[in-house]
C-alpha cells in the first residue's frame, strides 16, 4: 500500500466489494474545516459503492471495527469490509 499524503484518509476495499467497485485503494481529503465532520457513511455515499452498508458491509477504522457514523480524522485508514467468511 502506498504512503498516505498529509490530511488524507486512506480508503481500502476487499474481496468482492473491491471487484464490484473496480478499485482497491484510494485517498480522500479529510474534512476541510476543523468543525466539519466526515464519516464512513458519507464517504460510502460519495463514492457510490455497491451493496448495503450496515446490513452487508462493515466498517473498520485503523484496523478496528467501527460505527459507520464515526467522525474520520486525517491520517485514518478506513476499510469497507464485505461479508466475512473465515475458518
Amino acid at each position: 500500500m502506498a504512503g498516505l499524503s498529509a490530511g488524507k484518509i486512506r480508503i481500502l476495499l476487499f474481496a468482492g466489494l473491491r471487484e464490484q467497485a473496480g478499485w482497491a485503494e484510494q485517498q480522500w481529503p479529510a474534512a476541510p474545516q476543523p468543525d466539519s465532520v466526515l464519516t464512513p457513511r458519507q464517504l460510502w455515499l460519495k463514492l457510490h459503492l455497491p451493496g448495503a452498508l450496515d446490513q452487508q458491509v462493515r466498517v473498520a477504522i485503523n484496523q478496528q471495527f467501527a460505527d459507520a457514523d464515526t467522525p474520520l480524522q486525517p491520517g485514518d485508514e478506513l476499510a469497507f469490509l464485505p461479508p466475512i467468511s473465515g475458518g
Binding site: A15, G16, P82, I84, S85, G86, G87
Partner: peptide, 10 residues
C-alpha cells in the same frame, strides 16, 4: 474467527 476476523473466501 469465522464471523469477526477479516477473511474472505472465493
Amino acid at each position: 474467527l469465522k464471523h469477526h476476523a477479516p477473511f474472505w473466501k472465493r
